[in-house]
Amino acid sequence: MITQDNLVVNIDTVIYYQVTDARAATYEVASYIQAIEQLTVTTLRNIIGGMDLERTLTSREEINAALRGVLDEATGKWGIRVNRVELKAIEPPTSIQDSMEKQMRADRDKRAAILQAEGVRQSEILRAEGEKQSAILRAEGESKAAALRAEGEAQAIRTVFESIHAGDPDQKLLSYQYLQMLPKIAEGDANKLWIVPSEIGDALKGLGGAMGNFGPLTGGGNGGGTPAATGKEPAPRREQPTID
């Protein structure tokens, strides 16, 4: 058979029939078997000639129904009833078969590539989702840790403040503590300016006055500040502390 797109195909057909009128089958046609074969070939040529190769390969039910309709109408007056028509095989040319195999192989490769790409896509999505969840959990952990650190520092400040308040320190003690912290405040190149509360100045004056009471010992009758000769070793001179 020749298809609509001018390709030759070999079709193997099976027809199941039944003689319903022996007289008609004998006298209406010279040989009903040969007549059925010739009618089948002619009908198939007409049907296949209106289809391209792809439709021919995928429309077996349509071809069977069309062929059976034509045979029933023609063989009824011959005393023959066609029960069933089947296409056993439709074989395209060898070159077309090779092309079809290549096309099928290309389709399979295409589907495999699509499936692989889809798998990679799903993998990337899952990986990104996992990284997102990990980042969220990490941020939540850091936030909670920062909150706990801040709470701990606040508690420490409250504890120190309560201890200082319970001890009721005077200005001299606070001034001494401030002097102890001055080296730490001066650490770093960026510390160019110090903020000194005004109360510290008054406290430092009192602290300096208290420490200045321990002055040098001097002897009487010696205007030069030299100890008088008493027969004893002169007492060592005490250096007066200087408050910068």
Rank of each mutant, 00 (worst) to 15 (best):
T3N: 03
T3P: 00
L7W: 00
V8E: 14
V8I: 14
D12N: 12
V14D: 10
V19N: 01
A22K: 07
Y32D: 00
I33E: 08
Q34R: 09
A35V: 03
A35Q: 03
E37Y: 06
E37W: 03
Q38L: 10
L39H: 01
V41A: 13
V41P: 00
R45A: 08
R45H: 11
I47K: 00
I47R: 00
G50C: 11
T56C: 06
L57R: 06
R60Q: 13
E61M: 04
L71F: 00
L71D: 00
E73T: 14
E73F: 15
T75A: 11
G76W: 02
K77A: 03
E86T: 07
S95A: 15
Q103S: 14
Q103A: 14
R105W: 06
A106K: 10
A106E: 14
I114Y: 11
E118P: 07
R121K: 11
Q122L: 13
I125E: 15
L126P: 03
G130W: 12
K132R: 15
S134W: 15
A135S: 14
R138N: 13
S143H: 12
K144W: 08
A145Q: 10
L148M: 10
E151M: 07
G152Q: 09
A156F: 05
I164V: 15
A166H: 11
D168R: 13
L174S: 02
Q177C: 10
Y178Q: 07
Q180F: 10
Q180N: 15
M181I: 06
M181N: 13
A190W: 13
E199S: 12
E199R: 11
G201H: 08
G201P: 00
L204Y: 02
K205L: 03
G206D: 02
G208I: 01
F214G: 03
G215Y: 05
G215C: 06
N222E: 11
G223C: 04
T230A: 07
K232F: 07
P234C: 02
A235C: 10
R237D: 10
Q240G: 07
I243L: 13
